[in-house]
């Protein structure tokens, strides 16, 4: 099987898995496992009090903005690498072709 078809099938499988989970849990709260455990500790230890509060608390909208910026930047680096790589191999082939023509 060609590599590109394998990659497409792999990515499609990942997307299908996530979509399947979203569909079967359409009404679930999707609470983070970190939050579940934090709440469990708070409930199990009634006297529990966090000894250090965050120095500042950004508004949720700004946090979301930073999250999107982080994910976009990270994805850009990965996509740049994927996009840049074929161009390198094309450049190498062109270089080889030039050499062949020059020698011929």
């Amino acid at each position: 099987m060609r590599a590109s078809i394998r990659y497409a099938l792999g990515v499609a499988f990942i997307i299908a898995m996530i979509a399947f989970v979203l569909v079967i849990n359409a009404n679930a709260s999707s609470q983070g496992s970190d939050d579940i455990i934090s709440n469990m500790i708070r409930n199990t230890y009634p006297g529990f009090k966090s000894w250090f509060a965050p120095i500042y608390q950004l508004p949720p909208e700004i946090e979301t903005l930073f999250l999107i910026v982080a994910v976009v930047l990270g994805t850009f680096v990965i996509m740049y690498f994927i996009g840049h790589t074929p161009s390198e191999s094309i450049a190498r082939k062109q270089e080889e072709k030039k050499k062949e023509n020059g020698e011929g």
């Binding site: 609470q31 496992s33 982080a70 990270g74």
Partner: peptide, 27 residues
């Protein structure tokens, strides 16, 4: 350098994204 940056980018992206799991919670 670029491969190292890509390795870091994967950590950056994947560890920031909360993805829903089959149990109804996310991680």
């Amino acid at each position: 350098k670029l491969v190292l940056a890509v390795s870091g980018a994967f950590i950056f992206v994947l560890s920031s994204l909360h993805i829903p799991s089959v149990t109804g919670s996310s991680s």
